[in-house]
Design a protein around this nucleic acid. Structure first.
Lengths: 334, 334
DNA sequence: ATGAAAGCGCTAACAG
DNA sequence: CTGTTAGCGCTTTCAT
């Protein structure tokens, strides 16, 4: 419906064979100027667009890369997806996004469909467990922040290091009673890296380690975090595993009569562009989203070209200070 | 490489013809229970996945929908994309996202490629002007918040009404000197609706209408907005065209010594989930993102099925109050 | 109820 | 330099 004209029509109008038209389109083989011109005029006149499907049929490649994320509605994954799309477009690929929505079943259905040659490669940035499809396929895959299989490379940012820096920054600023929040879906080592770093720093300074779970539902999460102030009124610092928790706690702090940062210091995690614009004052560990995207695509392309790739790549993070911690003017840039 | 087994292999193993296997896969025509079983076992044993490209070759449909947005890194478009992806997945479509990045050239290149049957339909949510490709194609298209062509339906939210409500809320709360910020790329009527509403309300109340441009670059934008406090120190309320500006102004207000909301009231626009979590206190006009997504997909599907569709659909918005305006406790829910 | 054969639109040997 | 001829993997008449 949306496109009827085919190679043959162009060939007929130009008075050549289909093969010749194909050669002109792909600039392959020897062509005389005259035929090139004739063919191009014919294409122009007919407003011809090559049928991508038919081409793929032959090459068995789609130039499509699937990206599976929890949801592009989350700033971290939205920005990550955008950055990867940008890299991929430069290399001639288009992006098929799948929002897994923390729904393993959807992820699995999605994957099963993609496995039939709909994409040339896959980027996985979800944390759903037990998707057997990942184990059997030999589609080129790169994972972000998650181990899937021994021959699937993973791009991490330095979760342990970032969390360690954050916690030490709090201690250095006089925090005595530091609480942590964390998404508790520990599928692998990296998933718990931030918490392990927190616990290690607390231990090194002889302080108790108290971790509150971060819930997916905003309302429930708020209620759960509110308990911190009830159960640990002496809290004087919180290190959260993401910026959304930090924002909620910032708000709860006001409600509960804590002055930030004098009585309560807060450091978040992720540091997306969105957070930095919406909450410029928030101290947070900034993940290198553009670098992660670039590296992931680089690894994927290597796999697509059958080249060897490292098992994992770790990128360094950056502690951005802000007025939710003390002594900010001295150490911050702003 | 990533998938070698084809219909023929299954047919051979099951001892039937390719046609029969095809029938089993698609549950078409008459099949005996016995053959169904045989074929399914063969598929299972070979871990067979139908080649999507070959199927598309025949049907000339890809079940792919292209979504073109400025960037999924922006919460509004990220959430909108996520919501549309969700709707589309339910209907069996997958989503090809293209970040236009306010780059008309990229948008054009992208489009040109999609025109060759790579997608069955298109959702356009960008505001780049002068892309001739939109004029000629007969691909089913639905636009969001933007007029493209007389036969391309548009889904709007009530920009004029939302802005009017916001401005009147400020006046009702005693604001005398209200300033507005707006992205100034007025491609059509709707693009300026928020500003026109602001100007109308100001006029109706005999107040001056002063609009500051909202710049795409965060740093430049901040500097530009800072001028408001220099050039109009008597400002006592600001209505912004998006929440990012509102956030920046909230921060600048503190820096410039204005107490919010006593000395300066602020109302933003968009009200994404992300903003509501990151800045729960912000008063803002909430766009009905899920409803917009649903409607857009509904219209697109109608077009895909050659059904008639309305020229435009306008959805209502919701003014969410918050402590960036006065008398919030009384009117707000929280 | 199942098989044989003819495409879908394009590309790629192989001739000439 | 250009045309002819086979497919790519699947679906779908048309027979049987």
């Amino acid at each position: 419906m949306s496109q009827r004209i085919k190679l043959e029509d162009v060939a007929k109008l130009a008075g050549v064979s289909r093969a010749t038209v194909s050669r002109v389109i792909n600039r392959r083989g020897y062509l005389s100027q005259r035929t090139i011109l004739k063919v191009e005029q014919a294409m122009e006149r007919l407003d011809y667009h090559p049928n991508v499907i038919a081409r793929q049929m032959h090459s068995q490649r789609t130039n499509l890369i699937g990206i599976i994320v929890p949801t592009v509605g989350n700033p971290f994954f939205g920005e990550l997806t955008a950055a990867m799309e940008h890299e991929l477009f430069k290399k001639g690929y288009k992006v098929l996004v799948g929002d897994a929505l923390n729904d393993p079943e959807k992820e699995q259905r999605y994957l099963r469909q993609l496995l039939g040659h709909q994409v040339d490669g896959l980027i996985i940035a979800t944390h759903n467990a037990n998707i057997p499809e990942y184990q059997n396929t030999n589609l080129p895959i790169v994972a972000i922040d998650r181990f899937l299989r021994s021959d699937i490379p993973v791009v991490y940012s330095d979760n342990y290091g970032g969390a360690k820096q954050a916690c030490e920054a709090l201690i250095q600023r006089g925090a005595k009673y530091i609480i942590h929040t964390d998404d508790l879906s520990p599928l692998n080592d990296q998933d718990t890296a931030r918490r392990r770093a927190y616990e290690a720093v607390m231990k090194a300074h002889d302080r108790p380690a108290i971790t509150y779970p971060s819930l997916p539902d905003p309302k429930q999460n708020r209620e759960a975090l509110q308990k911190i102030f009830i159960e640990h009124p002496e809290v004087d610092a919180i290190f959260t595993s993401n910026d959304l928790d930090a924002a909620t706690l910032l708000d709860l702090a006001v409600e509960n009569g804590y002055v930030v940062p004098d009585q309560l210091q807060i450091i978040g995690y992720d540091g997306t562009q969105t957070t930095q614009r919406l909450l410029p004052r928030l101290a947070t560990v900034v993940q290198p989203i553009p670098a992660m995207a670039k590296k992931a695509i680089e690894l994927l392309e290597a796999k697509l070209n059958q080249q060897a790739v490292p098992e994992e790549v770790v990128l360094s993070v950056n502690l951005k200070l802000g007025s939710t911690v003390k002594n900010y003017k001295i150490n911050g840039e702003y």
